[in-house]
């Protein structure tokens, strides 16, 4: 075990993957000599050479299209998209080619491409540097979508994504890059390691299930602690929140969420991404379908608003925080009025 930041854990994970299989290639803008704008690939070019860790010309579609050709040739490319908001030029290659080639070729051609994307806000950045585009990719058949929230998961899940024979969008919570945690670098060798597609119960609880992923997992843990402490009104004032980190957004480990909601009867879903068509909308529909008779209250979503990501001086209001999460928890508990009470005439 070693303590390291989430960014360092990703770096260690990439190093391990490069050492393990010489078909693994790292591609991206500024990822070689500079080591990436977040330094996630720091030192890898020096260690593995410019043929394994390749600085790319500045064209995201070009990079993904090149990765497709390399995958045809039997390589296992790991692509870094510098910021979430820069992935859109590559959207065509990802959706029309990366996602569909295995299906189109009836399984003859594999696309084991990992696309790393620093995502989410909270760092006071300019436009296009704080977005959460995961739902576009979760909606696209043929892709897998994974996020991490801890250094250990960053280390484990990224390796699992790279070994996966399907294309994986790997979303990294950029405002948590500097979060430190203990990392067992040999975790993958253990028998009890969860598969990449599994959700994780982070905090056990009994009253409300709070589902989130990526950067908001830490916020959810804080919310659970605050709810457990109550507001000073004694036991009747506290709420026991079960926090689930989805980790995999496509496919979602619905069974883990179902088991929790069957127990708690209440569901709150939180993500930074806009609400409409989001991961939360789909999960609310799935859970309503599967846990209808267990639900004590309508599932609640705590999300970014349906506006473009705002200027950084607005982002503290745009991003779901502890108070907005607890507000939703209170509504499922009947402690605050339901948002749409009386709306149906």
């Amino acid at each position: 075990m070693a303590e390291m930041t989430l960014a360092k854990a990703l770096n260690a994970s990439l190093r391990r993957s490069l050492a393990h299989d010489d078909r693994v290639l790292i591609m991206g803008e500024d990822i070689g000599t500079l080591g990436g704008v977040f330094r996630v690939t720091d030192g890898l070019k020096a260690e593995f050479g410019g043929d394994r860790v390749m600085d790319m010309p500045l064209a995201e579609s070009g990079i993904l299209g090149m990765a497709v050709g390399l995958a045809f040739k039997g390589f296992r490319p790991v692509v870094e998209i510098q910021f979430d908001g820069f992935i859109y030029p590559a959207f065509d290659q990802i959706v029309t080619q990366v996602a569909k080639l295995h299906y189109r070729t009836r399984g003859n051609v594999r696309m084991p491409i990992t696309i790393r994307v620093p995502f989410g806000g909270g760092i006071g950045a300019v436009e296009h540097h704080s977005e959460s585009p995961e739902a576009y990719f979760a909606h696209t058949a043929g892709l897998r979508v994974v996020t991490c929230s801890t250094p250990q998961d960053a280390h484990t899940l990224l390796q699992q994504a790279i070994w996966c024979d399907d294309p994986v969008l790997f979303f990294e919570p950029k405002r948590r890059y500097w979060t430190k945690g203990e990392v067992d670098e040999d975790a993958l060798d253990r028998d009890d390691v969860l598969p990449m597609g599994s959700a994780r119960v982070v905090v056990p609880g009994s009253d409300v299930t709070l589902v989130t992923y990526g950067p908001l997992v830490a916020t959810a843990i804080d919310a659970a602690a605050a709810a457990a402490a109550g507001s000073g009104g004694g036991d009747a004032d506290t709420v026991s929140i079960e926090v689930i980190d989805l980790r995999s957004l496509a496919p979602v480990d619905v069974d883990t969420v179902v088991a929790s909601v069957a127990k708690t009867g209440r569901l709150v879903i939180a993500h930074e991404a806009q609400r409409t068509g989001g991961i939360g909308a789909d999960l609310a529909a799935e859970l309503t379908d599967r846990c209808f008779y267990h639900l004590e209250a309508a599932p609640q979503r705590v999300t970014g608003f349906d506006i473009p990501y705002p200027a950084s001086r607005h982002e503290e209001h745009f991003l779901p925080d502890l108070d907005r999460i607890l507000d939703a928890v209170d509504r499922t508990m009947g402690r605050r009025p339901a948002l749409y009470a009386g709306a149906v005439l």
């Binding site: 579609s61 070009g62 993904l64 299209g65 090149m66 990765a67 497709v68 050709g69 390399l70 995958a71 045809f72 040739k73 290659q93 080619q97």
Partner: peptide, 8 residues
Amino acid sequence: LHAMGYAV
């Protein structure tokens, strides 16, 4: 792009 990637 795929041809270029394959060639690389």
